[in-house]
Structures are given as C-alpha cells and as structure tokens.
Design a protein around this nucleic acid. Structure first.
Length: 754
DNA sequence: GAGTTTGAAACT
DNA sequence: CAGTTTCAAACTC
C-alpha cells in the first residue's frame, strides 16, 4: 500500500513489461497500476503457497464451496458475518486463495463487496473516485484476481446491508467501478466484468443455458490464465494437500464452530423470512444442492470436465428460477446437509489416518452415500477420486441423511428426467417427504433455529411423527448417554438431534471421537452390532422376486429374537418389528410371528393365522405394494431404469423399503407406520446381484444360514432408495454393489458394521 | 403423560 | 456361555 513500495515495484514491473501495451495503458492511467500488478502477482504467490489447511478457516472453505455452486449466495441477504475473513480483513490473501477457484461469475458482486467492506471506504464516503487508498484497489484487485468466493459472499452481504443499488445490478455497478478503476487492473477488470456480466445475464436470463454460462466462465478463466492456474493449484491443494485434512480435523474440533460457519455461510438467506412454501421448493433442490456442495468440495470435481460443471451448476439454475427466497431457503437446507457432510468428512479423514483398511470400506460407503446424495447427476464422482479424500469418514449423519432421504433419489430422479425442474416435496418416499416437510416445519421462518448453527445435531431432519421411525430416530435415553445400542439413534448410526429427548447425550457431532470410539468398542465385542438386524438371502430374492414382500421368510433377523411374552406379535420382537419371520436362530417362546414362525411357519401360513399383527402386517404389505405400483403409475418419470432391473430390485426390497407416494403416504402412514420399520431394520437389500454378492457374506451374515447378507450397515439402508421408483434403480444397483463390497471388507470403522 | 411391559443390550 | 441387570422402546391406561 505504501507509495514507495509502489514506485519500486512499478519500476520493476515496468522494466519487465514495458513492451506490453497494456502496461503502457496502465501507466498512462494511473500510478497505482504498477502496485496493483505487483500486488496481483503477490496475491497469486500467496495463493499458490498458501495451503488451504490453516489458512482457510473452515468457514471460508465452506463458504467457498457453497458460494460456488449455490445460487443463494447471490441472494443471501445475511451478511456473511465474521466468518468471512475477507469481509473482516481484506488483506488476507489466504482467503482469497482458498476461494480463488470460484468462478468469476460473481465478480461484479465481489467488487461491490469490496466497496462496503473496505474500512477505508467506510471512512471515506466516496471511495471510488478518491485516491482511495491503494488498499482498496489492492483489495479489489486481489479479490478480483482471486475471485474468491468469500469475496463474493461479502459482496453479497455488503450489497444486502447497504442495499445501495439493490439490483443496481451489474451494469450500474460496473460503471461506477469503471470510473474508479484506472490502469491495467482496470483494463483487465473491464474485460472480466464484461464476461462476468454476460455470465450473470446468462444465468438470470437463460437459467437453462448452462452451457453458455459455462463457456462464459471458461472464457473468463481463459482470459485470465493466472486465475485459472490458481484455481488448479488450489484445487490440487484441496484435493491432495494434507492441509485439508488438518483443516477438517481442526474444524471438527470445534464442530459447532464449523457447523455454525457452514450454516451462517449458507444461511445468508433472507432475513429470516423464510417461507415454507419457498423452503419446500428449495428443499426439493436441496438434495441436488447438497450434492453440488459435496461435489464442490471435491477437488477433482473442479478439475473435472465441463460436464461435471454443468451438472453442478444445474441446481443453481433451478434455484435462480425460483428466486432468491427459494435459493435462500435452499441454502438453509444445503447448510444442514453440508454441515453433515463436512462433519463426516472430517471424521472420515481422521479415521482414514487411523486406519487405512477402514478407509477402504469407508470410502466405498461414502462414495455410495455421496452418489446417493448426489444421485446420478455426477456418476463420475467416484472415479474422480475425490471420494477418497472426502468420504473416508462418512459419519453418522450421512446415515441420517440417507435415512432421512431415501427421498433424495426420488426427488432427483424426477428432477433429472424432467429436465431440471424441481420436484416438489412430492417425493414418493414418505420418509423423504416427511423429512423434507419436517425440515421445513422445523425451519422457523426466521432462519430456522433448529437448523441452527450452534447445534451440530441439525444433521438430522425432524421427521414427521409417523415417519419418525423411518427417517429419523428419536431417542429418549436417560442413562445410556446415547452411546449404547439401547439408543436407537446410536444403534442406527445417527447422531441425536433436537427431537430427541435424551439426557446427557454424547451422541453428537461434538463428541464425535467419543462416539466413534464407543462404536469401535461395541463392534469389537460384536462385529455385527451395527449391522442390519434383518438379513435377506440373495436366493430368496431371486426365487421370490417381487414376492419378497410377501415372503418375509426370505429375510431373517441376524441374531433372532428371545421373545417370551409377546409371542413375536409385537414390536418388542425385533423380528416382527423388522417385518421378518422368526427363524431357527430365534429363542422365542410361543412364537406367532405373523411374518413367519420359528417352527417353520411361513408368513404365508401365518397369514392364515390372522393374528392382529398378522393382519396388520399383511394389510401393510399389501398397501405398500399398492403404493409402490401406484407411485410408479403416478410418477412414471421416476422410473429411470428399465422395468426389469427396477422391478427386480424393487421387488427385492421389502415392504418397508418402499415408501408410499407422497400422496398416499399421508393416508397410509398410520397404517403402514407399524410395518415400515426400516429405520430399525433394513429390509430392502435383497436384490443384490448374485455375481456381486460376496460369498463370504453368506457365511458371515446369514443367521438363517440361508442367503447371503443383503443388508448393509444401517447406513446403507438409509442410503438406498426405498422407492420402488426405480428412477434411481440404477443408482440403487450401484449402491448395493457398494454395500456388498463393504461387507466384504469389514472395517473397524463404526460406520461399517460389517 | 405416567406407568407398565417387554426384550435387547450390557454386565458379571 | 449363562445368568442377571440395565436400559429404553413399546405398550397400556
């Protein structure tokens, strides 16, 4: 900022670039230029050298990622708050570095941002025309060069705060900037701004025209090689740099902080006036956005092809269409999901460090989860290898997500085929829909305290009462601290959330280490402790096909029940609760399990027995089946996979597996709720392809001695789309494969029960 | 909502 | 491995 330095630098730079017409132009324009150029170089250096790890506070990172793909960022009214270092400190190059990758699309905003942010400006009402302090320009330059997402956010915030040119939009803003900007910096800036403007316009006008947008962005990047370079470097760092790991770890240490940051970043939404309707729309998108974020986090993703970019950006477009609010609301949703991801990521990283073997299994799972979340949009994700870095520790909350979102797929599936159109909450999965609804409900208009930041628990969405067993578990543990299998949340691989009534709960992200350690201990005692309690045999699937739903006999509880008084006709009985018949492994007395008695009675036989439970179950089953079919009819678009595959799989899945369509779900919930216990027992697994099914699985997991283990860890269950809507059948297929692999390679990781 | 029943999980 | 205790969900009122 010092003039002397400037001069010095100027001389140097001039000597180097005298020939450059640009420099000449700059020189003519203003003396500041040289400094700027130098500064720019400096900034880049910093960027290149700065490791993302320490330099980037978790918040930045998160913000960066989010901002990149989240449309909301634009609209997020809320100031980024302290979390944005840039806002607070312009000088920090590291910030910019971390965010450099961000597309320059928001450059204009960034510029605006700079204006308000700059303390100098605050002091000086008219910063632009003033000599302004070099600091301002420098900061601008840096930001611009870096195109840091943070800056973007800041700009947004600033814009919102100042509300100056409300939508003055790019043009006005640009003009003002042009006046202010003089010199090389200005020159380049103009070019970039123009490009940016084009990009923005393209976004606004042609949301659907992603290709154009991308091209613009790419052009912009191309125009500014330095930026591109930087991006790559940063990406690389992010991907490979251990700093990331440390960063994540660090973030984890103060999980709250991290989560908070994330939320804040995301939650820039409208000043708390989040409307449910809007939110719902956003929610639908949330899945995608979340994916995007996830992807975004993935370093490889950035470097990946334009196609990926398109995919990523897609959600954003949708958001744009819906409007700021939508975007904002979605932001909240994203926020939540993101938080979860981050947490898991960190956890995964830790674990990775600890145990490679675990990593392997975990990766698979995580990939799977990611894929699920990300749905099919980014199939290549896995290959990208980012998963390796990110997913290793898929944590509990992913499970929760998966659990809550069987839906994700449904929504996504619909979305894709429909051409990016948002699919409303209609997600067929009751659980999904319920989850979404719950989330919405829980999200206060003001900003959703529940999702709030301070509470890491937010991971889980508040389930509807009926769905609660499915989507999210709620426990009431008072003495176990939610660190024992007594706790359903813990047993299901979920963190306890606000809806839980537990006391002294340690099953929270904050206590991740404790949770993980406890899980390990439990698994050491019983490797299957976290495995699905209900196992289905492949054979049964093959044999029974669609009939599986009607033939619980094909599925068995992993360890059998010990019922003495309930006659296996109540939910006290895990077999019954899991919707499976009792088997030889059961020690139950007076078994009357409607799904199949221990003595060999099949559910078929049992049906004849008309116990209340039995009837109930049957009705549920039938109902479910109907629901599934109905869903297909109603949402044909959801069925992306060939009927064969889909049906086979679907049929494979148990009753619980398929959630009722949104429409039906409501009416059905009451009746079905009893039967659909998926959360507790995974019954959907049957359809794993034989070839894929590891043989060891059978030996290891079939309590009945019958088939291989289809069930995956609780996590997997949740991940898998319960929907029969095979829209994601393909995906599901892949998921199953992963599950199997996981099973094949048992990991010490808590997540990997198998 | 409080109290009871039940069976899994944990402990010995 | 068996017996006992602890625990929290499921159930009842």
């Amino acid at each position: 900022m010092d003039t002397p330095d400037k001069n010095r630098i100027t001389a140097t730079s001039l000597s180097k670039f005298e020939d450059s017409p640009v420099f000449n132009y700059i020189n003519n324009l203003s003396p500041i230029e040289p400094v700027k150029s130098i500064h720019t170089g400096h900034s880049f250096n910093l960027l290149s050298f700065t490791s993302p790890s320490s330099a980037f506070a978790s918040p930045q990172f998160s913000s960066f990622r989010e901002s990149r793909f989240l449309p909301k960022s634009n609209q997020s009214p809320d100031p980024l708050k302290p979390e944005h270092p840039l806002c607070g400190n312009e000088n920090k190059p590291s910030e910019g570095d971390s965010e450099v990758a961000q597309p320059s699309v928001r450059c204009a905003q960034q510029l605006e941002c700079l204006m308000p942010q700059n303390p100098a400006r605050e002091i000086i009402p008219e910063p632009l025309n003033e000599p302004l302090g070099l600091a301002i320009e420098l900061s601008k330059t840096m930001k611009y060069d870096c195109s840091s997402p943070v800056s973007n956010k800041v700009s947004r915030d600033a814009m919102e705060t100042s509300k100056e040119p409300e939508m003055a939009g790019g043009p006005s803003f640009i003009q003002s900037n042009e006046d202010d900007l003089r010199g090389t910096h200005q020159f380049e800036t103009k070019i970039n701004l123009r490009k940016i403007l084009r990009v923005e316009q393209s976004e606004e006008v042609a949301e659907s025209d992603w290709s154009s947008l991308i091209s613009d962005v790419s052009d912009l990047l191309n125009s500014n090689p330095s930026i591109v370079e930087y991006n790559f470097e940063e990406q690389d760092q992010t991907t490979v740099d251990p700093g990331m790991v440390s960063f994540l770890s660090t973030a984890l240490h103060p999980p709250h902080d991290n989560s908070n940051d994330l939320e804040q970043t995301v939650s820039t939404g409208p000043s708390g006036s989040c409307k449910q309707s809007e939110i719902r729309e956003a929610v639908t998108q949330t899945g995608e956005i979340g994916e995007l974020k996830d992807l975004d986090q993935t370093p490889d993703f950035l470097s990946s092809t334009l196609l990926n970019k398109l995919v990523v950006s897609e959600p954003r477009t949708e958001v744009d269409d819906k409007g700021e609010k939508c975007a904002q609301s979605s932001c909240k949703q994203l926020k939540i999901r993101r938080r979860c991801l981050v947490f898991e990521k960190a956890a995964g990283l830790k674990k990775q460090a600890e145990n490679e073997s675990n990593c392997t299994s975990i990766q698979l799972q995580s990939d799977h989860e990611v894929a699920c979340i990300g749905k099919q949009l980014v199939p290549g994700k896995r290959e990208s290898g980012y998963s390796s870095s990110i997913l290793p520790g898929v944590g509990l909350h992913l499970n929760a997500l998966a659990a809550t979102s069987n839906n994700c797929k449904i929504v996504k599936c619909r979305t894709l085929p429909s051409g990016r159109q948002l699919i409303s909450m209609t997600s067929s999965m009751s659980s999904v829909g319920s989850v979404m609804e719950d989330a919405l409900q829980t999200c206060p208009s003001d900003g959703g305290e529940e999702f709030n930041h301070t509470d890491p628990k937010i991971k889980r969405y508040k389930p509807e009462p009926d769905d609660e067993s499915k989507a999210c578990k709620r426990c009431n543990c008072k003495r176990s601290k939610c660190l024992k299998l007594y706790c359903e949340c813990f047993a299901a691989g979920l963190y306890c959330v606000e809806p839980c009534s537990c006391l002294d709960c340690f099953n929270k992200p904050i206590y991740e280490d404790t949770v993980m350690e406890t899980r390990r201990q439990i698994e050491s005692r019983n490797p299957l402790a976290f495995a699905p309690k209900v196992i289905r045999s492949v054979d049964s699937v093959t044999e029974y096909g669609d009939e599986i739903n009607k033939t619980p006999a094909s599925a068995r509880h992993k360890s059998g029940c010990n019922c003495r008084k309930s006659s296996c006709l109540k939910k006290y009985c895990e077999c019954f609760q899991g919707g499976v018949g009792c088997s030889i492994s059961c020690r139950c007395e007076g078994c009357k399990n409607a799904f199949g008695r221990k003595d060999g009675g099949d559910e078929t036989e049992d049906e004849g027995e008309e116990s209340e439970a039995c009837e109930k179950n049957e009705s549920d089953t039938t109902l479910t089946d109907n629901v599934v079919k109905k869903d297909e009819e109603e949402y044909p678009d959801l069925l992306m996979i060939p009927s064969d595959v889909t049906r086979g799989k679907r049929s494979g899945s148990s009753l619980s597996t398929f959630g009722p369509s949104p429409k039906l779900s409501t009416s059905i919930k009451l009746r079905t709720s009893n039967l659909f216990h998926q959360p507790k027992f995974e019954t959907h697994l049957q359809v794993i392809p034989e070839e894929e099914t590891p043989k060891n699985l059978e030996s290891n997991y079939s309590p009945t001695g019958g088939g291989g283990v289809h069930s995956a860890s609780p996590n997997c269950m949740r991940i898998l789309p319960p929907n029969n809507k095979t829209g994601s059948s393909q995906f599901r297929y892949r998921t199953r494969r992963l599950t199997l692999r996981q099973i094949t390679f048992p990991s010490a990781t808590p997540r990997e029960p198998q």
